[in-house]
Amino acid sequence: MSEKNQKTVSRIKEVESTNLAPDNIRNEVIETKKAVEKDNDLLAERIHQNFKEHNVKSFDIVGAIGAGKTALLETISQRLTTKYRVLVICGDITTRVDADRIEKHNAETIQINTGRECALNAYHIHQIIKNKDLNKYDIVFIENVGNLICPSDFILGTDQRIIIVSITEGEWVVEKHPMLFKMSDIAVINKIDLKERLGTNVDKMISDAKKINPNIKVITTSAKTGENVEKLMSLMGF
């Protein structure tokens, strides 16, 4: 084995025995991670203050890819924009597809393309808020990147977090992703119009959500038929 290969093999052995980082930089990695989390929380607090000072109601919408976040926001925006001035911030890896869909329902939209990042963070939102006159809005929705894992690392400073899953994801989706249910105020189980056809155990999904977070409000909806959308809006305070 060449000297270079030997070095690589011994480095692999070293790295194999460590989860977070090798000993020489382990402390630095932990401190950096803690600092990033702390800074995000500080900025989120600032954002929340900003929203409150301007009487803006704010919601962080999280959920898996294809759960119906955009579809629900379309139908909710359609109902709300007759009375309120609505800003929707859409997070996606790339494209403006979601923002274009929601914009058709008279909400102002801003698209964030995160590139390779799997969730929005408070810095993204802060960059937008500081360039906006919040007096021009009554409601801000933030549609996070489709993902049931990463958004739990970053709070965004909204009044409420709403998690959206759908019955097409299977009845185990709630118990498999407890962290975001723990951190959310409302859980929406969408695509309920497909219940008979799919035979998903929706009662299990509801009881799993309640088990994970006894304070969470759970509602089943269909963005397609409009079932329970008004009820969801009333849970949100409209």
């Binding site: 890896i93 403006r96 801003i110 698209q111 964030i112 393309n113 590139g115 990042e117 993204h124 960059q127």
Partner: peptide, 16 residues
Amino acid sequence: RNRLENYVGDYPTFIE
């Protein structure tokens, strides 16, 4: 307004 279609590189983060 946005114009993002002709850059060279990986996927950066864009806030429009």
